[in-house]
């Protein structure tokens, strides 16, 4: 998985490409942990994301919980497959999907 970061003050953009699964979720978790301090607006771009597993959902949930405290988190360009996963798991209700 490739993660492209673009930070502008308290605004953080992250574009994910590839598969977010058991093998790659720790990578995203580490990236987020490293750069989320002081961020009030977090935007995740899922345009290049092919697959999302429960391990990935766990990282998203953690990020959502952190951002609930310090600002807002939005997920952009969610494709149909991943939207289905969000709906089946009930994540569609707790995430902000733009």
């Amino acid at each position: 998985m490739t993660i492209t970061k673009n930070q502008n003050g308290s605004h953080l953009d992250m574009a994910l490409e590839g598969r977010l699964d058991t093998a790659t979720a720790p990578q995203l978790e580490a990236e987020l942990k490293q750069s989320m301090d002081g961020v009030t607006e977090l935007a995740l771009d899922f345009a290049g994301l092919e697959y999302l597993s429960s391990a990935g959902l766990r990282v998203l949930l953690s990020a959502q919980k952190v951002m609930n405290r310090q600002g807002s988190m939005v997920i952009k360009n969610v494709n149909e497959t991943i939207m289905e996963i969000f709906e089946v798991t009930g994540f569609a209700d707790i995430l902000t999907i733009a």
Binding site: L61, E87, V88, T89, G90, F91, I94
Partner: peptide, 9 residues
């Protein structure tokens, strides 16, 4: 209908 995962919120 699906609710949110257990232990999430």
């Amino acid at each position: 209908r699906a609710g949110f995962v257990l232990a999430g919120l």
